[in-house]
Design a protein around this nucleic acid. Structure first.
Lengths: 142, 142
DNA sequence: GTTGCTGCAAAGTGTTTGCACCCTG
DNA sequence: CAGGGTGCAAACACTTTGCAGCAAC
């Protein structure tokens, strides 16, 4: 089955005169199967389950491609490695990160967004992206 | 002159049976003179202007000390290196980061904080810290 | 067949650590 | 004078890059 995401990636690839390869498909598929916030290493482990010969460098290179084509976005929760999340057909959200168990709760609050815009325009600032991370303890770790 | 910050650092050092050294004083002083969001490297360059023999490792180690004693906090603007900001006698604030010129505007919006608390408690989440970074263009770069 | 892609290993980047010597308390 | 602190260099963790062969168009 050709997912919508594969379509997006191939469109991007064709438009930029790049090439569609099975490694790129494999990384994309693994990414789509992965849970929300994967690191490059985790994705690499996932990919090599089905395609053992794919290299870590290719995973990094393909993640860059996914980011450029709008399918993924990189996050930094301050643990020393970038994490990637799905962005295609996913609306913006922020994160609560449990510092005990690592659980991540996603949320979105329209009023927070609204006040962000307000404070930005008051400073003549044009927002292109933002991120709000709240660190603490989830209900189970409290 | 013995700044309040020096007092805080020395208190922390004494309480933890550590030792006050001229390197630690030098790093603290350089940190206090620095603008808001310094990287370890920048601070190292600053320190070595007056104390050429201080090593980069000592700067890192002292920054850890400053963080533990509550004088500094580390930030991550996603540029691949940690930055440190003053926290002593500074209230919490968030950041607008101009992706063009690197300018950082600090702000605080009580209502944003309030809604953060609200959304957290609704999820049974206890916030210990949070950060909100907005990326975009400042008034001069627009 | 041209040009981009891959895997590998090597190089980079920012940060941490091991160690012998030094200095504070 | 004991035990932590320092500078140096090596080690680290994660990511990027150079290159020769390979595959897509």
């Amino acid at each position: 089955m050709a997912s919508k995401e594969l379509q997006v990636l191939e469109d991007y690839i064709v438009q930029n005169k790049l090439k569609i390869t099975k490694q790129r498909r494999a990384v994309l598929n693994a990414f789509l199967e992965c849970e929300k916030h994967v690191s490059a290493e985790e994705l690499y482990n996932q990919v090599t389950l089905t395609d053992p010969k794919v290299g870590l460098a290719t995973v990094y290179r393909t993640l860059a491609l996914l980011t450029q084509s709008g399918l993924a976005a990189d996050l930094d929760f301050g643990d020393g490695q970038k994490r990637y999340e799905h962005t295609y057909m996913h609306s913006h959200h922020d994160h609560m990160i449990c510092t005990e168990c690592g659980k991540i709760i996603e949320f979105n609050h329209p009023l927070i967004e609204k006040f962000q815009e307000e404070v930005a325009s008051r400073n003549g600032f044009t927002i292109t992206s933002h991120k709000l991370d709240m660190f603490g303890l989830c209900s189970e770790c409290r």
